[in-house]
């Protein structure tokens, strides 16, 4: 299709405004954060695969994986992973609500966006409180 790509454009086509033109709103920022958390989880699943494979091998491999995940850096990564997981899950629930045709009006969509943000932090804190109590 290179030949058609090289064809002269008759005139400049209208473009939709770029991100920098928009005033940041809650819904738009949460939309970007949804994508960023999704991307982070994409990489983070490597940790799950590593943990499962180590557990399937032997006690030494399990010990190495556990020690790494339990180090300061490992815990920070897992904390971020937990938050990304919950934030992305709540964002997904928000999308399901929108797909069903609800919550798209002015105050509701702002509440949903705010709920996604706050809910993500709250669920992360709850799970880590349980985790640290159990550990």
């Amino acid at each position: 299709m290179a030949a058609t790509d090289a064809a002269p454009t008759p005139r400049a086509r209208p473009l939709s405004p770029h991100l920098s033109v928009w005033r940041p709103t809650m819904t738009y920022v949460m939309s970007i954060v949804h994508r960023i958390t999704g991307g982070a989880l994409y990489i983070g699943v490597l940790l799950l695969a590593w943990f499962l494979l180590a557990t399937s091998m032997d006690a030494t491999a399990f010990g190495v994986a556990s020690a790494c995940l339990n180090s300061i850096l490992g815990r920070l990564v897992l904390l971020g992973f937990t938050w990304a997981l919950f934030h992305h899950m709540l964002g997904g629930i928000r999308h399901i609500i929108w797909d069903a045709g609800y919550g798209m009006d002015k105050p509701q969509r702002e509440w949903l966006a705010m709920g996604t943000l706050i809910g993500g932090f709250v669920l992360t804190i709850i799970v880590w409180a349980i985790g640290l109590a159990v550990y």
Partner: peptide
Amino acid sequence: ALALACIYAVLRI
């Protein structure tokens, strides 16, 4: 690869 690795590991366990 990631899906296969995880499934393989769970089955092996």
